[in-house]
Design a binder for these strands. Structure first.
Length: 624
RNA sequence: GCGCUCGUAGCUCAAUUGGAUAGAGCAUCCGCCUUCUAAGCGGACGGUUGUGGGUUCGAUUCCCGCCGAGCGCACCA
């Protein structure tokens, strides 16, 4: 158990003894400002209102009933009622010793498994087929993967899902355009060719009304199993998958083809889903009926979910959603021409993930086990927030969000993120206004990193340099994305993200490389025994920081915010660097001290292995 | 127009969810390499948290009004 949760437990007990168990639930304990405390308990202020007593009195009473002597010496009451604690060195060194001596705990760097293991679906990446992956896919892939990795590490059963766009409207344009091109589908296409076909098709679709109509007809043909359309679809899809595999591998994204269930996977479920939804929700009559949809200004929108046909399309109307004229906004589940669209597919995917089991016919990829998800997370662009809000509400209205095993509502979460902008603050594009291809972006990252490595460490042999450049370049791109709160846009500026100082990927990798260098010189000893002593403020600060790791990791998955972890790792590396400057390790004044400091290095490395490599998916380097 | 998200140091960002004197990096200035990787460390400078109210022991955080930015709002995803 972490120090923080241990303290929380102690305070809960103390509050129960002092004021009764009804006040004892989850008292606030958090790491304090180092100026005042290692940890502080702020429960007294909250309780003072409930008890009608001055907060400092409450704090005094809490302390009178608390048993903390083994953890900290003389806790202090400060300000309005903060209880400040300095963890005793004896306790801190004992905890570090325990971590060091237990190989399992050390490999996890002190991170406990979640009390309850749940099944979590993480839906991320989701590129469109027939297009090269571009910056638009970067954040979803990187953030989603970090979230999936962290959930898995916490002991949850994670189902990664790559919901590729392979059966929608845009595909009709390609099928229609292919007719004009007379493509040879005998040999494998190249992704770059497909990408340009796509652009040309999209251009035609805009300018040529007849083409546009035929493209939409092609979607219907594809979705109803037309063999010619399917043949072309396979031809394009195979190459697109190869391309995605390549990009994911370079980025260290843990998605495999087994995780791929795109729009096409749900194709034969769509009519059934629409049917079932119409049964699950009340029907809104047999016509669009402008009058029933006309809403008084005082209470815009509908009061209750229902399904109805409106202007030829089959729609779900939901409370709380209105358009720009304050009229009810529909969630369209079948278009006027009979084709289905992304809302339908998302509904089908949710049903699949929550309700279906392996007895359900599944011609594409038979399931090896039932999912029955407890939680489903979508990592997509913030612009889709309203779409997911509607889809989730529709699922809830139909009562499809109840897990069939636990009978509890499934936690449906959209983890939205902002856009990647150029230095001018406008969406990141090439000079000619096209979206930046991921392949080229990663090439440039590695190339720029290579130049920096060459300058910083000229004596590094070429093979090693290339390895370092790859890890630094890719790591810098990933870290730049992860370090910032996902909700905000961020500017993609090469010099900023490949900067070697500050909160950047290279800085963290550098810290790890310095630790590894010490161990190489020490002869790769593993300091599993011996006393740890915390002589200097730097050693103490580092020790304290290491012990906080286990409390940080869970917050990443409750809020779906990997930047919490980045901030922590950056601060850990700061503490380590200060320690490194102030405390000679190999030339320590005594063998015991040397051993103790080696142990601190070892534990720091353990945290970086878990945090940087396992959870954020950024490569570590032995030297750089 | 309605809705969502946001506004913090010259610049790029944090702030453990209502906690103490709002923290980092860059930039500027001053120090530290014949000692484990200086891609580093220590220090200085820099703030009316867009703005005006409200809630309370306490507000960057919650509520309301303005100002400004981005995004979304019927058959694209």
């Amino acid at each position: 158990m972490s120090i923080e949760s241990l303290l929380r437990e102690r305070f809960s007990r103390a509050i129960g003894l002092a004021f009764g168990s009804e006040f004892a639930g989850d008292p606030m304990v958090k790491p304090g400002d180092p100026k005042f405390a290692d940890y502080q308990c702020n429960a007294a202020m909250a309780l003072s209102r409930q008890l009608g007593r001055p907060p400092r009195d409450v704090a005094t009473d809490i302390l009178r009933h608390a048993s903390l002597t083994d953890i900290c010496e003389s806790p202090q009451i400060a300000g309005p009622g903060f209880i400040n604690m300095r963890i005793s060195s004896i306790f801190l060194t004992r905890r570090l010793g325990e971590l060091l001596a237990d190989p399992v705990a050390k490999a996890r760097a002190g991170v406990a498994r979640a009390a309850e293991s749940t099944t979590v679906v993480v839906d991320y990446a989701g590129p469109n087929i027939a297009k090269e992956m571009h910056v638009g896919h970067l954040r979803s892939s990187i953030l989603g993967d970090a979230i999936a990795r962290t959930l898995a590490f916490m002991g949850h059963q994670v189902v990664r899902q790559n919901h590729v766009g392979d059966f929608g409207t845009q595909f009709g344009m390609l099928i229609r355009y292919a007719k004009d091109l007379k493509l040879d589908t005998g040999e494998m296409p190249r992704i770059t060719d497909l990408d340009s076909y796509y652009k040309q098709a999209a251009g035609r679709d805009k300018s040529d009304a007849q083409f546009s109509i035929e493209a939409r007809q092609a979607v219907v043909a594809l979705q109803s199993g037309d063999p010619e359309a399917l043949r072309l679809w396979h031809w394009i899809r195979d190459e697109s998958r190869r391309h995605c595999r390549e990009i994911f591998a370079r980025l260290g994204i843990t998605l495999s083809e087994a995780d791929e269930r795109g729009e096409s996977f749900y194709a034969d479920r769509l009519s059934g889903v629409v049917q079932k939804l119409s049964e699950a929700l009340p029907l809104g009559g047999d016509g669009p009926d402008e009058e029933t949809l006309e809403i008084a200004d005082s209470q815009p929108g509908v009061t209750k979910a229902f399904v109805t046909e409106s202007q030829g399309a089959l729609c779900v109307f939901l409370p709380g959603f209105v358009d720009k004229d304050k009229k009810p906004l529909p969630l369209i589940i079948r278009k006027g021409d009979g084709a289905y669209l992304y809302a339908t597919t998302d509904l089908a995917a949710l049903r699949f993930r929550i309700l279906e089991d392996k007895s359900t016919p599944d011609r594409t990829a038979p399931l090896d086990h039932n999912w029955h998800a407890d939680r489903i997370i979508y990592t997509t662009d913030a612009r889709q927030a309203q779409h997911f809000a509607m889809v989730f509400d529709a699922i809830r209205a139909a009562h499809w969000d109840i897990n069939p095993v636990t009978h509890r509502p499934v936690e449906l979460q959209h983890a939205p993120f902002g856009s990647i902008l150029g230095e001018d603050g406008k969406p990141f594009k090439t000079r000619s206004g096209e979206s930046v291809k991921l392949r080229e972006l990663l090439d440039e990252a590695v190339q720029r990193a290579d130049a920096v490595v060459q300058q910083k460490n000229p004596q590094l042999p070429e093979a090693a340099r290339r390895l370092v450049a790859g890890a630094v370049g890719i790591g810098a791109v990933k870290y730049a994305d992860l370090r910032q709160d996902r909700i905000s846009d961020y500017e993609f500026v090469w010099d900023r993200l490949l900067a070697l100082d500050g909160n950047t990927g290279p800085y963290l990798q550098y810290t790890y490389a310095r630790i590894r260098s010490i161990f190489r010189k020490a002869g790769e000893v593993t300091p599993s025994t011996g006393e740890i002593t915390l002589e200097t403020p730097q050693e103490r600060d580092l020790a304290r920081r290491i012990m906080q790791f286990g409390d940080v990791v869970p917050t990443v998955v409750t809020d779906l915010k990997p930047h919490y972890l980045c901030t922590y790792l950056y601060e850990l590396c700061g503490s380590y660097s200060a320690f490194y400057e102030a405390c000679p390790v190999l030339k320590a004044s005594s063998p015991e001290l040397r051993q103790s400091r080696l142990a601190l290095c070892d534990l720091t490395a353990a945290v970086l292995r878990v945090g940087l490599r396992d959870l954020l998916g950024i490569e570590l380097l032995e030297e750089m």
